[in-house]
């Protein structure tokens, strides 16, 4: 169990680095082909619509810190509950968003965990 927690903490750190790099392709490698992302509550996006939205979002140079709150890891499927804060630079004070994400990951045949469902506002508190 503790090995799983370490694995998922490392995954989260790598994802945050990819997100904060601002490079969309680097971040997109963390998603499965069929992934669903719900970056705006009530608006699940998949495929090209998901990619277009996330690419556009990264152009605002958001910086994220994420902390693993809970993890449930089976042989090839995981559920993560994650506290996160994102700051987006503006002309004045940075815009700040925060939430509790609910993420489902799948382990690929290549041994890499990827997001199948990414729901940043998945839990209210």
């Amino acid at each position: 169990m503790s090995d799983h927690v370490e694995t998922m903490k490392k995954h989260l750190a790598r994802y945050a680095d990819a997100f904060n790099s601002g490079d969309f392709e680097t971040m997109d490698a963390f998603y499965t082909e069929e992934a669903v992302a719900v970056w705006e509550p009530g608006k699940p996006l998949t495929g090209q619509a998901r990619r277009d939205f996330q690419r556009e979002y990264l152009r605002r140079e958001p910086k994220m810190t994420a902390t693993l709150r809970e993890s449930f890891v089976t042989d090839d499927t995981a559920l993560l509950i994650v506290d996160w804060v994102i700051e987006i630079p503006t002309d004045g004070a940075p815009e700040r968003e925060q939430g509790v994400g609910v993420d489902v990951l799948r382990l690929g045949d290549d041994g890499v965990w990827r997001y199948a469902v990414d729901e940043p506002f998945g839990q209210e508190s």
């Binding site: 499965t32 669903v36 719900v38 799948r106 469902v117």
Partner: peptide
């Protein structure tokens, strides 16, 4: 509910 290939939340 969200379905992403062979997994659903």
């Amino acid at each position: 509910w969200y379905v992403a290939g062979d997994v659903a939340l």
